[in-house]
Computed example of a mutant assay.
Amino acid sequence: MLSGDLYQQKNQVKIGILLILMAFSGAWFYYTNTLIVRLESHEEEEVRLYAESLEYALTSPVETDVNFFFDKVVKINTEIPVIYEYQGQYQSINLKLPENTQEIPAFLKQKSQEFQTTHPPIEIDGGFGKGYIYFSHSFLFTQLQYYPVIMLLGLLVFGYLAYLAFSASRRSEQNRVWVGLAKETAHQLGTPLSGLKGWVEYFKTDPDRYETEFVLEVEKDVERLETITARFSNIGSVPTLHPEPLAQHVEQFVDYLKRRVSSKIKWNVNNEIPAGKMIPVNRNLFEWVVENLCKNAVDAMEGVGELRIHLWEKAGQTYIDISDTGKGIPKSQWKQVFNPGFSTKKRGWGLGLTLAKRIIENYHRGRLYVKASEPGKGTTFRISLPS
């Protein structure tokens, strides 16, 4: 049995993959954040070493030669931008300064204020007063901060493109399977159908033995089989659309269905389309859509209830609502019902609504969707076609 379980399993697989990706992303962010914290701590220690070395150099006795040691400390820092401010005078390392020397003091003052937003200044004793060391993150630190975000975005883009490619490949494969199945079904139906047509003609030649009404009904069913065979032939290729009196066809088809479903179904057809209005459709395939929707409605009502069909036009569109008083569809499944394999019935392949949507949207440039549904009260499917 093909049922909603198949779709549920697919959803579970998707959720599982999503959870794995989320776990991987979380682990990646945690690891990267650990590196960032360690790098930040290392950079701060490096700047504090620079501050202590500078303070020692400024406060050491004149005869003490600390320049060699201080130069070594300065050369260690090749990436962290640092500003030393003492009594309104500024010095810097690892900063690109303005070419105009007159702009440098104002530039360094502004930068020192910006640096305070990331790290508090380090206070040092300059010998004749307090000095301050301002510093910011290195370029390597900034890169490491944005790296996981860029990496994740890259993975998302790659995953999305892979999903599109996979979906296109899957749809193409499904189309080939459907076309092959449709062509083979039409071929297999052809032989017994020819035989049935021959028997109908034979029945007509002996009206005394076979009731005329019985023969006519059998003939209608044989014609129906011919229509079904034509449908399967058309589904395998792009069908031709012809202007047809759509409302009239729907009413005739409903009359045909009435005799072949439960007599406890009350039919209500409300046609507001002007008589003779022609709408471009493929009659065989469109009747297939109406048949699928009506039979699903009968199944949803379990053979007892009211089936309403409303036809009308508005703003260049033709609308057909098919409503039942059945068990309804939960809102979470309104889109799922059109997925291949989704079915709430014990028997069925779950392809009827899938093919119906394909016929309306791919071949007729229209729309087929669940307009409204409430569990225990019924469902309304809406077809919209360009007039």
Rank of each mutant, 00 (worst) to 15 (best):
L2P: 12
Y7Q: 10
Y7E: 09
F24I: 14
W28Q: 06
Y30G: 04
T34C: 05
I36F: 09
L39W: 05
E43D: 11
E45R: 12
L54M: 09
L54N: 01
L54Q: 05
E55K: 09
A57G: 03
T59M: 07
N67W: 14
N67S: 14
F68P: 00
F70A: 08
F70H: 11
F70P: 00
F70M: 11
K72N: 13
T78D: 15
I80F: 05
Y84L: 15
Q87L: 10
G88A: 09
Q89E: 15
S92I: 04
N94D: 06
N94V: 02
I104H: 01
F107D: 05
L108A: 06
K111H: 06
S112H: 04
S112K: 07
Q113L: 14
T118N: 05
P121H: 03
E123R: 10
D125K: 07
G126I: 03
S138H: 02
Y146M: 11
Y147K: 10
Y147S: 11
P148K: 04
M151T: 13
V157L: 15
V157R: 05
A162E: 06
Y163F: 12
L164P: 00
A165S: 12
S167F: 11
A168C: 08
G180V: 01
T185Y: 08
H187R: 15
G190D: 14
T191G: 07
L193P: 01
G195R: 12
K197F: 02
K197M: 09
F203S: 03
F203I: 03
F203V: 02
P207L: 08
P207V: 07
Y210E: 09
Y210G: 00
E211G: 15
E211Q: 13
F214V: 06
K220W: 02
L225K: 01
I228Q: 13
T229W: 04
T229Q: 15
R231H: 04
F232K: 01
F232Y: 15
N234Q: 14
S237T: 12
A247N: 04
A247F: 01
Y256S: 06
L257D: 02
R259L: 13
G276W: 05
G276E: 07
G276R: 08
G276M: 05
M278T: 09
L285P: 01
E287R: 09
W288C: 05
V289F: 06
V290Q: 04
N292P: 00
L293I: 06
K295E: 12
N296G: 11
A297M: 02
G305H: 06
R308A: 13
E313L: 11
G316A: 08
Q317F: 09
I320G: 00
I320T: 04
I322K: 05
K327F: 04
K327H: 10
Q333H: 10
W334S: 09
K335F: 01
Q336K: 15
F338E: 03
G341V: 01
G341C: 02
F342E: 02
S343V: 01
R347H: 10
G348M: 03
G352W: 00
T354L: 06
L355E: 12
A356V: 01
Y363K: 02
R365A: 13
G366I: 03
R367M: 08
Y369I: 03
K371F: 11
T379H: 04
I383N: 02
S387L: 12
